[in-house]
Each structure stands twice: as C-alpha cells, then as structure tokens.
Design a protein around this nucleic acid. Structure first.
Lengths: 344, 344
DNA sequence: GTGAAAGCGCTAACAT
DNA sequence: ATGTTAGCGCTTTCAC
C-alpha cells in the first residue's frame, strides 16, 4: 500500500538501485532491455519518485512562495492566477500566504516560507509594513526575492509594477477632456508607491490642462469604511467635486452609490473612475469606468522573472524592473469625450 | 552564507550531531549546560532545521493541497482564506491549485499534489468532472481527501457543504411572502449537488405555498455569458417572472442590470436574489439580496476536519459530513415582507 | 550525559 | 552495462 521505492524495484528485479535510477531517467549507459523492464515494473506498481528525497539531495526544492496582502481581493486573485499558470507550467509548486495587511503577519509569512525552504518569494507588501528586516532576511538566506505591485522601496531587488503614473494620467486627462474641473483623488497612504505614482499622474494631468491642484480634493480613502466617511464629506465642499478618481474599484463602486444616494447624477454631475477593472465594474449602475491593471499578465511576468533568476537564466546582472501597461476602459460612470475616445 | 546544519554546530562545539539534535529539542538526557551552549550557538548562527530532511525521515510532509475550480472567485477566495487561517495555525503549509473548471486540469492538479506528497487534499470539484478515478487515486495513495462545497457524490469520503436546501427554501419562501408568484430558478448543471439541493429547496417552498412548479421558469444559468442569453428570454415569457432566484451573485447582479435595461423596475416588478453575499451585493443598484454562505467558516471547518484526520484525532470512524448554515441577507433587490423580516 | 551507526529515498563518483 | 559506496540533514536505536 505504501509507496514503492527505487530500492523495492531494484530488489524485485535483482538490480542495484543505481541501475534502476539510471534506467528511469534514460541514462544512455543502461541497455534498452533493462530500461524497459524497469519502466514497465515501475508503471505497473505506480512508482512515484519521492520528491522529498530529491529535494534533500539537491538541497533545492522546486517551491515558490507568494505573499499577498489579501486573498479575497479581485486584483490579487488575478495576479495569483497568473503566477500559478506560470509556476505550474515550469514545474514549480506554489505556497501562497497572505499578510492580511498586517506587518506582524507578514513577518510570520516570511518565516514560514523560509522555513519551508522555498527557492524564491514573490511579495506584494502590506499597507502597514514600515520595517524591512524580514525582507532582508530573505536575501540573507540566499532566497530569491521579487516584489510586485506593492513594491518595497527599501530593498534593492527585482520588481514588477503596473504603470500607475500613466494609468492615472490617462484617466484624469480623460476626465478633464470630458469636462470635469474639480477632480478628487481618493488614494492610499503616502508610503505606498502605487498611490504616490498615481497621484503624480493625477497632478501632472491637472497641470498640463492648467487646473490648479486643490489639497482639499486629495484624501486617503482606500477602503469601504473610509469611503463611507470621506466621500460624503467631499460632496459637501464648495465647489462640489465633479469627478472622483479612486484607488480601487470598490471605493469607486461605493462612490457611485453614495453620490446617487445624496442626489447627484452619475455621470452627469459626478463622474467616477476606478482602478483595476474588476468584474464589479460591470454590475454597478452606471457601469464603472476603470483602469485595467492586467493582473494575470503581472503574475506571469513576475513568476517568469523569478524563475529565470532561480535557474540562472536571467542574463541581466543588476536589479530588473518590469512595468505592465495599463488601459483605461471607459464605461458609463464617466461622461463621453468627443472624437478622442479611441485615443486610449 | 549557506544555511548552517546540525553537523556544523556539532563540529564547532566538539559535540556529536545526535547530542546537538537532542539539545535543540530539550531532550531530558542532555545537561542544562550543553543545552544552553547549543541553543545559543544555534541562535547566533541562525540555525534553521531543514524541513526537507525531517520530512524525508518521517516520510510525511506537513503540507496540505487544495483544489478549487477558480481562484478569481469571491466565494472560493473566502474559503481559501479560512483554510489558510486554520492550516497556518496548525503548522501546515498550503499548496493551492485551481482546475479552471476543467476536468483535465483537475486531474493534473491531483497528480501534482500527489507528486508533492501532500498529506491531505481538499477539493471542490470542477463543473465538468464526470469521472472520479483521479479522486480514487488520492485515497489509493493513502492521502486524506475531503470535499467541500462542490462535493463528489461518487467518492465516499469526508465532506463539508453549505446548507443549500435550507438556504434556497428560506430565500424562495421570502420571495413568496413578499408577494412574488412567478419565481424563476437560475441554476447550474444538474450533475452538481449544490444546484440540485437548491432546486429542491426552491420547489418545496413553492409547494408549501401551493404554487405550481413551472418548468419554463427553471434554467441552467450559472455564468455571465449564459445570463446575457437566458434572462432576456425569460423576461419575454407570459406571465413574466416576478422574481429570479440565482445560483450566484454575479448572475444575480447581471440579472438586475438586464431587467432594468429592459424597462423592469427592481424590485417592484422583478425581485432578484443571489447566493453567496459577496461584496458585489453592496454595489449593485438596488443592493442585492443574497444568501450568505460563510465561506471563511467553511474553509476553517474543512481544514480542521482534514487535519484531525491526518493527525488521527478524529474519533469518528466512518465518513463525516459537516453542514455550514446559511443566512438570507435581505437588501434592496427584493420587496419587503411585513412583520416577519426578522424571522430569518 | 554523550557518541557511533544506521537509515529515510535518491543520485553520482568511482569502480568493475 | 551494471554494482558499490557515500552522502544530502536529521533522528533514533544502541552502546558506553
């Protein structure tokens, strides 16, 4: 009942374990006949090589770890999907863990993964992380490390990010060209590069169109809870914002709900734009305009790069940064723009 | 730079590997002094026991595998979240894979997990799976197997399911009590127990209230694509359905969109009820009434049961079935019911 | 209280 | 073309 081993086969066939080992792996020195006998026997008895033994020998296990802030999260799910497709086709196993946006848990995740002796780790940093010792420890253990999306600027290693700046710039410019002038920016904490980069894109779009930047229109608002507090407040401002550029689709979806419940017409009076282009954008009313982040693609690129590093296939010596392009997907929560709709 | 081993410590301290091993694990035969020396040295040099070696020795790796049909899926994400919480706190690693609702891929997932020599597997079956040899193979390999949600009726093993029947019955009865009489059932393929059980609940609720069951109101419609085809057709029926009880929130959300776009008022003319109570229910307009499935709880229960099996802690000999209760969460896509709103 | 030796399943260097 | 031996890192008899 228990799994059969190489030794068992050797004994049964009156061969040595090494011969069996070689036969199984088509070593040229083994005769065709022996090879066939061994393989037939192995197949008949459902022999499976013991990965653990292999791994112990090579002191290398073909497992990659991932740390995401959340699992119940559209964008990260898509990235995980991409990572899985890539790791699977390359024969790697995937250990997935999530920090729940908590620094302490993130540290624990790192420890668990190092403990499991993964050969590489993909990380999207938690919102609350401000110390990087645990990431440094990964490198100290000679384990490959790559950040994606929520990168850590304090550690010099490979990164894959979305083109947050361009995504924001394009979206905000679209809002401007559709006639909006008081565009609010609902972002995340300033320590997050993705938020800062989008804010730069937002500000530069305003500048390009000679619109003054109004601090009152810039707020941290990256969760549903914050949305319920921040958005009603902003809608009391004078002049009232005529557009909201949101850090994610959830906040944007709530923004639509809140604006409508306060009597504003969307998009006629208030335009709303999200970020991610999750399926939520199809079921809001009106359907949500959003910036697609191509999560699956990001996951694939990140995993491929990490695997290349692990296998020593990446030629570039220094740190590599890859950027995934974004795309503004115009739906119904923003006003139309004449004639340039296809520019994006 | 490379990880330090027991042997290294032994050599450095002029001890034997076995003494070091014992000292590290507080073996009583080792003197306090030696223990301290060893532990201090280990700490100072960041010794980490090599899991792979441990696993090879015990021929047991503390890894659990999961197969879900999809990762980018609210309900399964919540289940994974629950599974992870539980496995992590019990010191198990988690290997997550997804079948993408494809039988072939599911078979491959099983092979990969068996290959990785996991000690237990949690499965939610793909929609297209009709042969069960790969599941049987798990058992043949003496690996523990547990189905959750999308159970496989062809294999006799532990299961954790949602109370689909009661969830459907309660929801449909609510629709009836709110005044609906032509209630459509948008389900999944008949081979799926979750769909059949809900249909039983649906039919029994109708029967209880002496409403005839109309086959024209029962359709397979479990994806967005199908929703776009099926729902407009049904809304052309005479009499037109005054309610839709949907197999998941996505179909329900599209149902709202479609009904509204065809000029029906929701919920006044057409009520819509989903299943899962994902965050999507908060951003549809009107907000979606849905049956909460408590995915995190399901994940925790499933993982705990499996771990109990693995560790021989589960006293019950035969197959165990656990049922997670559901809860109807009334929002705005259904009409109000007087005085009994709190019954649920 | 500590050490020597064997072995988990596999492979690779070194025989023959 | 095949066998012997040693060793990956660890634990666990069995000795002393």
């Amino acid at each position: 009942m228990a799994q059969i081993t190489l030794k068992d086969i050797a004994k049964a066939l009156n061969l040595s374990p090494s011969t069996v080992s070689r036969a199984m792996r088509d070593h040229p020195a083994i005769s065709k006949k022996t090879r066939k006998i061994v393989k037939d026997y192995a197949e008949a008895h459902k022999y499976k090589p013991n990965r653990l033994a292999l791994q112990l020998r090579t002191n290398k296990n073909n497992t990659i770890g991932v740390i995401v802030p959340e699992i119940v999260h559209y964008f990260f799910s898509t990235v995980l999907d991409g990572i899985q497709q890539e790791t699977e086709s390359e024969g790697y196993n995937l250990l997935i863990s999530h920090s729940n946006e908590d620094y302490e848990r993130e540290v624990k995740c790192v420890e668990t993964l190092l403990d499991a002796r993964v050969c590489g780790i993909l990380v999207s940093q938690s919102k609350t992380t401000v110390k990087y010792d645990h990431f440094q420890e990964i490198l100290d253990n000679n384990v490959h490390l790559l950040f994606f999306d929520r990168i850590c600027t304090g550690i010099n290693t490979d990164k894959v990010v979305v083109d947050d700046y361009a995504g924001a710039f394009t979206a905000v410019e679209y809002l401007i060209e559709s006639g909006c002038r008081n565009i609010a920016f609902l972002g995340s904490v300033p320590s997050m590069p993705i938020s800062n980069n989008r804010r730069m894109g937002y500000e530069d779009a305003l500048r390009k169109h000679k619109i003054a930047i109004d601090k009152k229109l810039i707020e941290v608002c990256d969760t549903v809870e914050l949305a319920k507090k921040v958005i009603p407040e902003m809608l009391k401002l004078d002049p009232v914002p005529d557009a909201f550029f949101c850090i994610n689709d959830e906040v944007a979806a709530y923004c639509i709900q809140i604006a409508k419940s306060l009597g504003f017409m969307v998009p006629e009076e208030v335009s709303v734009c999200g970020f991610t282009n999750s399926y939520i954008t199809e079921v809001t009313y009106p359907r949500l305009t959003s910036v697609d982040q191509y999560g699956v693609e990001m996951g694939k690129v990140a995993a491929r790069l990490l695997i290349n590093r692990i296998e020593g296939r990446e030629k570039k010596e220094g740190v590599v940064s890859r950027v995934i392009k974004t795309e503004l997907v115009v739906k119904e929560s923003t006003k139309p723009v004449q004639s340039i709709a296809q520019r994006y």
